[in-house]
């Protein structure tokens, strides 16, 4: 049997305008609240059914395990992932630099004016320039020479004394010696 004092207190509270208003609101919202409760009940029931469906859970677990095993991951991999995570800031910095370098190369090779400038610059390099000058002068003198002028023995001897030719002969001689030595070593092996 309820305590009379408590009943009176509840009655007094329910008669207050604020509580009357709240009750009215709840009664108005009752259909929506019921729907929400029903939905929650359905979800809970679904989870309960799934958890009790051992064959489905077992299939899922087997599939996940198979995939995990196929990765052949070991403790070393876990350590490597940790190490990699630690190095990520440095790696990102390096990757950014590599990306910038690749973008720069791409810019250069697609920039026709820069390529033309580089090609022009190469021709003006001192060594290339010197080589070009020598060839140009050689071609000019060769063209101006008498086409059928005789080549005497004396002329050949004179040519053989030319320091450039002597140096060339010596280089060729050394080259033959090195080739011979390597061929001999290969046979021995």
């Amino acid at each position: 049997m309820a305590d009379l004092t408590t009943d009176a207190q509840i009655k007094a509270i329910l008669e207050s305008p604020e509580h009357k208003e709240s009750l009215l609101y709840l009664i108005n919202k009752l259909p929506e609240l019921t729907d929400a409760l029903q939905m929650l009940e359905d979800k809970t029931a679904f989870v309960r059914h799934v958890l009790s469906d051992k064959s489905s859970l077992s299939a899922l677990a087997d599939e996940a395990e198979d995939k995990w095993n196929s990765l052949q991951l070991s403790g070393e991999h876990a350590s490597a992932i940790l190490a990699l995570t630690h190095k990520l800031p440095l790696l990102v910095e390096s990757l950014e630099k590599a990306e910038e370098a690749a973008s720069f190369v791409k810019q250069v090779v697609t920039d026709k004016q820069s390529l033309a400038y580089l090609a022009g610059s190469l021709k003006e390099l001192p060594l290339v320039q010197e080589g070009t000058d020598i060839l140009a002068e050689t071609n000019l003198r060769y063209r101006n020479e008498q086409p059928y002028s005789k080549i005497s023995i004396m002329r050949i001897f004179k040519l053989l004394k030319n320091p450039a030719l002597v140096s060339g002969f010596r280089y060729f001689e050394t080259l033959l010696e090195v080739v011979h030595k390597h061929a001999k070593n290969n046979k021995g092996a």
Binding site: A101, F104, Q107, V108, D111, Q113
Partner: peptide, 18 residues
């Protein structure tokens, strides 16, 4: 200066790459 810096300027610096 003569041969590389112009290339680096047009294709690197102005592109925000160097």
């Amino acid at each position: 200066k003569r041969n590389l810096l112009p290339i680096m300027y047009w294709n690197g610096m102005l592109r925000g790459l160097m």
